[in-house]
Design a protein around this nucleic acid. Structure first.
Length: 431
RNA sequence: UCCUCGGUAGCUCAAUGGUGGAGCAUCCGGCUGUUAACCGGAGGGUUGCAGGUUCGAGCCCUGCCCGAGGAGCCA
């Protein structure tokens, strides 16, 4: 008898199969019993009919607790009355492990705070399963896109000797008696890699010790950061819009069942095709002022400002050429207008806000040295970074795409915390 | 760090200052097509903690703890 996965059960209609999984739910009507089995790839109804099986096998499951692990053997039937259009007519069930009777999660009515304490069990639910499968698809799409477009994976270190950008708070750790910090960006190392390999990206976790407590923030999150030599701002933007459109396309193509389960409006995602609109910071300020925002030229956008801007478009929108003082020290000033940076952020639609931040980097040695001093950064820590401007400096650009925010947008979630298996949130690190 | 809201059964929530309830979950019983099944019955409580006001506090007051949302900052 063949052991099969629930997600391709339709290929086995009329065949005897075995499913290895867990008991998700059960319903009984006396002489007919329904079990909902999950195996990690999907959920399927298993039906037991008293008159069609041995008494012992029929009664075996009476005391079976939720989440008990079981092997179910039976006939795959097309059945309109079953949730997925298919069910298994059970011949026999083998109980692998009888779960304890106090499984804490019931099938309805839990608050997120409670569920987060049981995140290790919550992952078993259909909704969490769908979200994390979409996350995996997005990660795969990003890697495929970059690999197919000549980028090579060159990962940056997690433990770093100093701040990459200096501004945000870092997690400090002890490195054999010296201070070290968990990375908040692979950016600077990427620039070194880009001068060695041309087009590179790093993909990994990053850490911010900011005491942020909002639906858009995690202490630990994942970022993909491409960086390329001889790449100028607008060329970088073009890569970004193609990348974002591609990952949306791949999710639509490969994860339609998961999107439906999340009740995501797929029509909104189908609109995500290049080119994306481009708005200068100056234009954005005018729009915000016209909408009643108190923002002034030189301010960075707040969450509400981003929402106003992104709601104006069906596609993600680039906001480019921010005031230099809003941005990191390595951002290259626009030669036409030195008060603004050659940079662009990408705001996702439907109020999801910033998913990409990127820009062109300073390639002149003297200017970069000045900026390092201006930002009170330790020159000693950045000698290697300055070297990149001494030996074959070229115009170069890159960007960072936040995985969790992207997943939240594609899935249509109102909070980022469900987009990562075990979110690290303010004052909360269990489980 | 600041602002707002909240904390009552395992969970989600009710309860004019006057005997703390419901749905789900659990246990028992019933049901041959259930769809977070349904129907009947039972058990389940130091109302976050510590004080205070009152004849009487889940409810009013003070302090603390914890949680949620938001601000700042950012992806």
């Amino acid at each position: 008898m063949e052991v099969i996965s629930i997600n391709n059960i339709e290929n086995y209609e009329g065949k005897e199969v075995e499913i290895r999984g867990w008991l998700y739910n059960k319903r009984s009507s006396g002489s007919i019993k329904f079990l909902i089995i999950r195996d990690g790839t999907g959920f399927i109804q298993a039906t037991l009919i008293k008159s069609e099986m041995e008494k012992e096998a029929f009664e075996k499951i009476d005391g079976l607790e939720y989440e008990s692990s079981i092997k179910v053997r039976g006939l795959v039937k097309r059945e309109n009355r079953a949730p997925r259009g298919f069910e298994i007519l059970v011949r026999n069930i083998e109980i692998v492990h009888q779960a304890w009777e106090d499984y804490p999660l019931s099938l309805k009515e839990h608050g997120t705070g409670f569920l987060m304490n049981y995140r290790h069990l919550w992952l078993r639910s259909p909704r969490q399963n769908a979200i994390l499968r979409i996350r995996a698809e997005i990660v795969k799409a990003i890697r495929d896109f970059l690999d197919q477009n000549g980028f090579i994976l060159i990962d940056a270190p997690i433990l770093t000797p100093s701040a990459c950008e200096g501004t945000t708070t870092l997690f400090e750790t002890n490195y054999f008696g010296d201070k070290a910090y968990l990375t908040q960006s692979g950016q600077l190392y990427n620039e070194a890699a880009a001068m060695a390999f041309g087009k590179v990206y790093c993909f990994g976790p990053t850490f911010r010790a900011e005491k942020s407590k909002t639906r858009r923030h995690l202490m630990e999150f994942w970022m993909v950061e491409p960086e390329a030599a001889y790449l100028e701002l607008e060329e970088s933007n073009e890569i970004q819009e193609k990348l974002v459109a591609y990952l949306v396309e791949q999710v639509l193509k490969n994860k339609p069942i998961e999107l439906d389960l999340l009740e995501r409006d797929k029509a909104r995602l189908q609109l995500i095709t290049p080119p994306f609109p481009r708005l200068s910071y100056d234009e954005a300020i005018e729009i915000l002022k016209a909408n009643g925002s108190k923002i002034e030229w030189g301010d960075d956008f707040g969450g509400e400002d981003e929402t106003i801007l992104s709601n104006k478009y069906e596609k993600p929108v680039f906001i480019h050429r921010y005031p230099l003082k809003c941005k990191a020290f390595y951002m290259k000033p626009d030669p036409q207008r030195p008060e603004v940076a050659l940079c662009a952020d990408l705001l996702a639609p439907e109020g999801y806000g910033e998913i990409i931040g990127g820009g062109q980097r300073i390639d002149d040695y003297n200017l970069l040295a000045e900026k390092i001093e201006e930002h009170h950064l330790s020159r000693e820590n950045y000698e290697w970074y300055l070297d990149l401007r001494k030996y074959g400096s070229v115009p170069h650009s890159g960007f960072g795409l936040g995985i969790e925010r992207t997943v939240a947008w594609v899935c249509g979630l109102n909070h980022i915390r469900e987009t990562i298996p075990f979110p690290r949130m303010l004052n909360k690190i269990y489980p």
